[in-house]
Write a protein that binds this DNA or RNA. Sequence first.
RNA 1: GGUGGGGUGACCGAGUGGCUAAUGGUAGCAGACUGUAAAUCUGCCGGGCUUUGCCCUACGUAGGUUCGAAUCCUACCCCCACCA
Length: 307
Amino acid sequence: MAGAKVPVLVGPTAVGKTAVALALAAHWPLEIVSADSRQVYRRLDIGTAKPTRKERARVPHHGLDLVEPGARYSAGHFARDAAGWIADIRARGRLPVVVGGTGLYVRALAEGLFHEPALDPARRRSLDAYTARLEPLELLRWAGRLDPGFRGGGRQRAARAIEVALLTGYPLSHWQEAARAKGAIDPWYVVLTVPRPVLQQRIATRAAEMVRRGLIEEVASVLAEGHAPAAPGLDGIGIREAVEYLHGRRPRESVADAIAVATRQYAKRQQTWFRHQLGGTVLAVDATRPPERLAAEIAEAFARVYP
RNA sequence: GGUGGGGUGACCGAGUGGCUAAUGGUAGCAGACUGUAAAUCUGCCGGGCUUUGCCCUACGUAGGUUCGAAUCCUACCCCCACCA
């Protein structure tokens, strides 16, 4: 499918990506592919700021509500799924537009990761349980021994390096070099930016809104399904803070503020990623302006680049 | 009014004579990032400079003791607790 450019709208949370994507529907017959590692989880709608029912009715969305909160999803999984959706969208004669906040997911789709050999799920689970109990320092040392090419990065990345080395017999860095994958799309990046004070204001408003609209109740009901505290779907900003409150570890009135702080930090990391990690053509647009106006501008620029 | 406790860098909070521009933590800033990524990590974080170092300013305020004070003494201001 490479060859045909795919518009990829990226930017920090709360910058207004969805609104712009929806406005783009006035210019193209399009379908949206959401590259968001949290919105793949079912039911956690408020906490992950999913597009509303109405918005989804206006334009078909892909990549939402894919798995149960207890299930593990991943960048590689996303890349495969998204390649399929995109092919289907094209077959329908429409334009796929990738919209995302999860940098790694976008990269997995646009550049490809590496062909990961099958990892035995049972061995993986028991290894996970084992490494979870080790100190970060031990994990790092172990990862370095198993994979001389290990580039560091903390507990989680060390655990990943250990897992790959042990379960495949070859170090992670080996696979990364020897089994490179190709991207599934040829991306045309549009980076939405907004001055920091504006973004922080939007984030604060959104955090308060989430609580007001029932975030805590939503999380409580998902919790009531009996997921493990460490369930993959429960590990997200907003959800975490709600869980802390529900477990009596945080006063209710501090929830919104804590969410805003964590979101701000996350938005910063996203901006760093989009500033340095994106390969390919990039159009930066100031998202302070109305979505319709941005959409027109983006559509026009795209037509110039890819008539 | 009395007694006791306390006032430390944006915030919380260690530090009780030199090794202190001051441990930690938080917030903030910058960065990394190949299948958990809303994750996981790293660096910086009083100001200035001719930046392996130097100079200012700083631990409520004002004095004092000392070669040397955030640390000791005196007075004052403010906060908290209890007693009146």
